[in-house]
Computed example of a mutant assay.
Amino acid sequence: MNKNIKNMFKELKREFPEDFGSYDGLTVDALDFKGNYDDYTDFDETLLFDLEVCYKDQTITIKRYYKEIWEIEDENYIKSEYFREIGKILSIVMKHISRIELD
């Protein structure tokens, strides 16, 4: 269970080794419909509801509304200097999310 989320974190750590998990680098938090975060034992990726990506003080939220319907929003304006990295991060995230068989 949760193999896709685990693989997503592994790939992000591999691609962003200097920044992953650092306060002002790259953090990713996943939340399921039951309110469990990705580091909780009860987290269920098939119930993924919300995924928040923070990179260099730029925050992007990916929310699931119904089955395969998602919304991607930014909480601030994205600085152009981070476009390439954020694009790569979102590509990795969405690749792994799309592999989850959602309920």
Rank of each mutant, 00 (worst) to 15 (best):
K3I: 08
K6T: 12
K6R: 08
K6S: 05
M8L: 14
M8E: 03
K10E: 13
K10S: 12
E11P: 04
E11N: 07
E15R: 12
E15M: 11
F16Q: 07
F16W: 11
P17L: 06
E18A: 11
E18C: 00
D19R: 01
G21V: 00
Y23C: 00
D24T: 03
L26W: 02
T27N: 13
V28C: 02
D29V: 12
A30Q: 01
N36W: 10
N36P: 04
Y37P: 01
Y37W: 08
D38C: 12
Y40H: 15
Y40W: 09
T41P: 00
D44V: 06
T46Q: 12
L47W: 04
L47R: 13
D50A: 05
E52A: 10
E52W: 00
E52Y: 01
E52N: 08
C54V: 12
Y55M: 02
Y55H: 02
D57A: 12
D57P: 00
I62S: 09
K63Q: 15
K63V: 10
Y65K: 13
K67Q: 15
K67F: 14
E68P: 01
E68L: 11
E68H: 14
I69R: 14
I69V: 14
E73L: 09
E75A: 09
E75D: 13
E75Y: 06
Y77A: 09
E81Y: 09
Y82N: 15
Y82F: 15
I86S: 04
I86K: 08
I89N: 07
I89L: 11
I89S: 10
S91A: 10
I92M: 08
V93R: 02
V93T: 09
M94C: 14
M94H: 02
I97W: 08
I97A: 04
R99N: 13
I100A: 03
L102R: 03
